[in-house]
Design a binder for these strands. Structure first.
Lengths: 224, 224
DNA sequence: TATTTTATAGAGCGATGCTCTTGTATTAGA
DNA sequence: TCTAATACAAGAGCATCGCTCTATAAAATA
């Protein structure tokens, strides 16, 4: 329906400018020229609206990353990885409130519905595809490929292993997971203000920091 | 004052059980048997109370980590690091709402006052001290110690370098920063639910995952 | 004792999420 | 074409919130 889209658009704008905590159904209703009770015909609750925005944000981030990555030659695994990392960070800087919504503190009592799972996995999927190509091309660190590992860790990473499709040693999967965590941790730290008084924020300083992180992540997997 | 302490205690309990978003001055007042307007004699605003709790949480985490680390022999750098990491994670699991408060999404419009800086730096300081001892003992990776680095990165990490006291190569500082980010990123990912449907959560599985992270962080710095 | 300070209560403002009832168009069926 | 069902919106209302203002009781001070 038309109105549903209008509500979503207004909500998106409110989220981007004020952030999720101050997103109010009444304000959106006011803006669209209807009563607060009227929007409840289209939105089940505030949490419901939040879910729309969460899915929306995941998809926006996923699309931005995929688009950027697709612009790099398939053989250039390093370039694809670096481009993806930068796209993620750039999207986050451009959409800080959206980032906080999906990667920040969970709302107590709120349980993410199933329809958020697929959008949430777009970036991990992208990183996974890059990893798989690196493995296929034999460009992953030898010591990692051959390493035997705690069986508990094996089972812990079973869901990830299956998602990858091809057989990848657990040590490699774990290293990829660490890169994934490191990437999102670094972006969150920067956005959530943990670098205040710790890292310089002059022109280019944060970029340089992040770029070196990317290089180190590549090193850790062994892609060279 | 007595009442101030009572308010803080009640607030702490509310935070731990319901989380920060639903922390209400009125509820605290009700619980202490006074009017909502009465608490405003002791608390300037809700944000003010939040700041108390933030400082409190940072100190609680800092104290727990320091206590754990102090129980390890000084020469055992690996043990000190591992113990600190585990203490941080354990504290987070035991105090999820407090963790979300200090490491989750920043409240839009809220600016952390200066009195949060020192408590916030307790864990980084602890990690820094371990790093310094490792450097002094010559136990940091050679390749890292000798590496030359982008001057922009140099200046970006200047605040950190000064905080460490002794001369540590930028490449090492950056690596330590990555470990710091990785540690807090990993804990946040686990607590904020990003591992749902991705990492198994059977008995010991998450522990095994984290333990290997710790080992890899040690490897990356080169402590062995 | 008189006065000033301190601590509390109470009422009130504007805002929120959400529900329930009422009213009105538009559409579908007889 | 008339009627009945349906879709949609408005309005009032409830409980809650942060916060302010004023009036009042108690305690400390002069």
């Amino acid at each position: 329906m038309e109105i549903t889209a209008e509500i979503l658009t207004a909500a998106r704008r409110h989220l981007a400018s004020e952030g999720a905590p101050s997103l109010s159904l009444r304000a959106i209703a006011r803006e669209l020229g209807m009563t607060s009770s009227a929007v409840y015909r289209y939105v089940a609750s505030r949490d419901d609206l939040l879910t729309w925005l969460i899915v929306d944000a995941y998809n926006s981030l996923g699309a931005a990353s995929e688009l950027a990555e697709r612009g790099v030659e398939r053989e250039d695994v390093i370039g694809r990885f670096r481009t993806t990392c930068r796209a993620v960070r750039q999207w986050a800087i451009s959409n800080p409130h959206e980032w906080a919504l999906i990667y920040g503190s969970p709302v107590p009592g709120y349980v993410a519905p199933a329809d958020t799972i697929v959008p949430a996995s777009r970036v991990p999927q992208l990183l996974g595809a890059i990893l798989v190509d690196a493995v296929r091309a034999g460009r992953v660190r030898e010591s990692l490929m051959g390493e035997r590992v705690d069986p508990t860790l094996d089972s812990s990473l079973a869901p990830l292993r299956e998602a990858l499709g091809i057989a990848v040693p657990t040590a490699v999967i774990h290293q990829a997971l660490m890169v994934w965590v490191g990437l999102f941790g670094a972006v969150s730290f920067e956005l959530f203000g943990q670098f205040q008084n710790v890292i310089g924020d002059g022109p280019g300083e944060r970029d340089a920091l992040f770029d070196r992180c990317v290089r180190r992540w590549l090193d850790e997997i062994g892609i060279a």
